[in-house]
Design a protein around this nucleic acid. Structure first.
Lengths: 238, 238
DNA sequence: GTCTATATCTGGATAGAC
DNA sequence: GTCTATCCAGATATAGAC
């Protein structure tokens, strides 16, 4: 699947994300007109991600946020009741998105080799679409409240678990050689994370998400299928 | 080389690091007795790394630091003149260490395959010895002052450059296949960084730095030497 | 060299006008 | 719903005794 095809399929816009959020949290948010609320939530979150990813969430003052979002400090507090709640709001959005996208796009793919390639692609493509979220989540994970910390760990286990499962399936079918599934999955995750953590680097080198995706897949397959002299045909490439 | 052998060779103790630092910065530091100064610098840096790596440097208050280091707030300011200077002090130390260790331990190894393995091992072993520094550097990089920011980028380029060079050498000698050296080096770095960024994970799974090192080497060699059905003997393993 | 006490300021949060 | 003005806790940094 190309990146453009993916974007068409998932169709995650900032607005959709925050409209969903608004509907699920109507009680917490003081502003009652949906359109107004959604518009401002988008402004606030964009500003918050931009400033935080530049200098860190804890160094972002609410005065910074007020200037960049174009809302007064008083208005900001109509959308969240504390700075920490704002952090949790952003985190929450990423996690629900990742679980949703994985579940829908991996179902129905049974062949482990094919499933491996799809999982890598989906993760990279999703993190490309939501790069600021992913970067933010990674960097600010340690500052989460207790509950959201738990959710973050669950999300971490969830994605890594997907890869562990795939590897074990492939080993059962003798498609992959007998390496340690957990460490392998951990390393795959590290490769995937590098894409959104060092995006400036890949951008300056003109590496597209599709190219990177192919390199990662090649890397992982070389490792899992080493000493297996298969042709591309046999591997399931097309 | 085993990890223990490495530790014996490099022999980086906290004390040596800060003694060096003290001698190079005698003018900045108000305390004039070397032994007192070094002892307290060790206390301060250990406390600062421990607290920062738990909740982030910007959320560490000087009161926290005072309690954990056992020095009063007034005393702390005999060793640095602002909180930002403390950050730069810690960063500086890691970078000089990494350049020193790489230069001494890679010189004399000419075979690209061997050089690749050594570079991976050295990086992992060094980051294991200095884990809190590496983690800190990575997480707080964005908060550096202008000058130190430049140094940080240089250090980044330095390590990645080592791997790019090795890969290009190996390709010239037809030991490695023709993949993109830059992206490959970037991915190798991502694997190396995962070791000190997610150390808790590997610790909880009882993965030692030597085991991890072998997996990374296997991973990278599989990729660079794919479709080359060599035996371990031929690859130079022993 | 190190401590306690304190000056000064920054930033999160709220009250109340519009 | 949004703004301005303000409160006040808590942070950095310093002064001066020991």
């Amino acid at each position: 699947m190309t990146f453009d095809a993916f974007k068409g399929l998932v169709n995650i816009s900032n607005e959709d994300i925050w409209r969903d959020f608004y509907r699920q949290n109507k009680d917490k948010i003081k502003v009652k007109k949906e359109d107004v609320a959604v518009r401002n939530l988008v402004k606030i979150s964009s500003a918050a991600l931009s400033i935080s990813n530049r200098k860190g969430f804890s160094l972002m003052t609410l005065r910074d946020l007020s200037v960049e979002s174009g809302l007064s400090m008083g208005a900001l507090y109509s959308y969240f009741s504390s700075k920490d709640e704002l952090l949790d709001m952003i985190q929450q959005q990423r996690m629900t998105a990742i679980i949703k996208v994985f579940s829908t796009h991996l179902s129905g793919i049974d062949n482990p080799a094919q499933r491996l390639r799809s999982a890598i692609q989906i993760h990279l493509y999703l993190s490309e679409v939501m790069q600021p979220w992913f970067y933010f989540s990674y960097m600010e994970a340690k500052n989460l409240g207790k509950d959201d910390r738990k959710k973050a760990i669950e999300a971490e286990i969830f994605t890594e678990g997907i890869f562990i499962d795939i590897i074990e399936q492939g080993q059962k079918k003798s498609l992959f050689r007998n390496v340690d599934p957990k460490t392998t999955a951990a390393i795959i995750k590290a490769m995937l994370q590098d894409w959104y953590l060092k995006r400036w680097k890949y951008e300056s080198r003109n590496v597209s998400v599709e190219e990177y995706s192919e390199v990662v897949i090649d890397f992982v397959e070389s490792y899992l299928m080493a000493r297996n002299n298969q042709t591309q045909e046999e591997k399931g490439w097309t």
